[in-house]
Design a protein around this nucleic acid. Structure first.
Lengths: 196, 196
DNA sequence: CGACTTTTGTCCGTTACGGTAAATAACGGG
DNA sequence: CCCGTTATTTACCGTAACGGACAAAAGTCG
């Protein structure tokens, strides 16, 4: 259970509903952990079954009632125990990079298109990180533990995106150099026989 | 299927056995894609069933016979088709980073220990990348597609490890600043009740 | 009335991960 | 001679994760 722990970690900040968590996993913590709403609700059920979180129903008018989840002491303890175990380095697993490993066996256009999309994506993220950094830590320092954690996270994110964005530019350059001019025509010798 | 495609990508270089692939996934391509031998053998069966690869048994004396897998034309085509589809940006999913999101709710010692281990790990990798780079591309350039792909891969890997290693140092610094001196003692109020 | 949003779920199928184990056979150390 | 390691492939099993489709309930907006 790792997604579960990520959820627990989120709930240390404040009690949240599944819906809110799903939103959170789409932004802040979502920058380094993706999870859709089904996953989150499923995981919430499990966490509740284990007594790590507690749901409090909030009656709403105009909207369905919502379930605000709060960490229990057991949950806090579980999180601490989990956090005390050595972490696994986590592999990257990037489709795009696999393509580069077989660059001479794939068509270059899509790779290039992908790179352009990535470049934009990483630039975008980089800017978002920078914006948040400037807003939350104008002087680039923090003193409380929670803040320090987030500052470091933001710095890492920012640098990562920056670095990858630069790499994308370089890669695009290198690929264009491969063909000299805009469009490549890779001879599809066995392309005729299409695919079984 | 993504692991399958990673395997196909590996096999574009040369025919390999499952055992060799497992080794490969423990080094070169393994730098950005982890897979153990069970996964690989399972995936190889699937790929064979689909006709993407072809196994040739090599009788050995002294060792069990081995199955050398070769890409079929169908496999090549499948790889190319897969590579032509836009890639998914791939989320990082790092345990350690989750901890930083809840830094005030976890014990710092293990986090610090983790960081030290990571620092070593990333430095190690960084050096490995650099060594390979110097060896394979002494002048930092490449002309053939396959080489360019690997050059770019190595550059990305190297920079990534470098960057993360530096971040680890910074994080260790920041954490030590948190407590002023070597060892922190976080009061474990509910640690007594152990865990249900 | 119908479409859309908010909120909370369920069901189902696939992919992936990873531990344990086993068969087979040589080679090398104590 | 037993044991551990290397090389090689494979099976079984459980859990984690992913993600599409669907539903239900209550408001709002057009």
């Amino acid at each position: 259970m790792a997604l579960g722990d990520a959820i627990l970690a989120c709930l240390t900040e404040r009690p949240m509903t599944g819906y809110e968590l799903a939103k959170t996993f789409d932004s802040s913590i979502g920058f380094f952990w993706k999870a859709d709403h089904q996953q989150i609700y499923r995981e919430l059920s499990k966490l509740r079954d284990r007594g790590y979180i507690q749901g409090r129903e909030v009656v709403q008018t105009g909207k369905p009632n919502k379930l605000v989840y709060t960490l229990t002491n057991e949950g806090r303890t579980a999180l601490r125990h989990w956090a005390a175990r050595p972490s696994t380095p986590a592999s990257n697993k990037d489709d795009l990079l696999v393509r580069f490993h077989a660059l001479d066996s794939v068509d270059l256009e899509p790779v290039r298109a992908d790179l352009m999309a990535r470049l934009e994506h990483h630039r975008d993220r980089s800017e978002r990180y920078e914006r948040i950094l400037k807003k939350r830590f104008p002087d680039g320092t923090a003193s409380e533990a929670a803040d320090i954690g987030n500052l470091l996270l933001l710095k890492l994110g920012s640098r990562h995106e920056q670095m990858v964005a630069e790499w994308c530019e370089e890669a695009i350059d290198a690929l264009s150099g491969l063909t000299g001019h805009g469009t490549t025509v890779v001879p599809l010798e066995d392309g005729k026989r299409e695919k079984g």
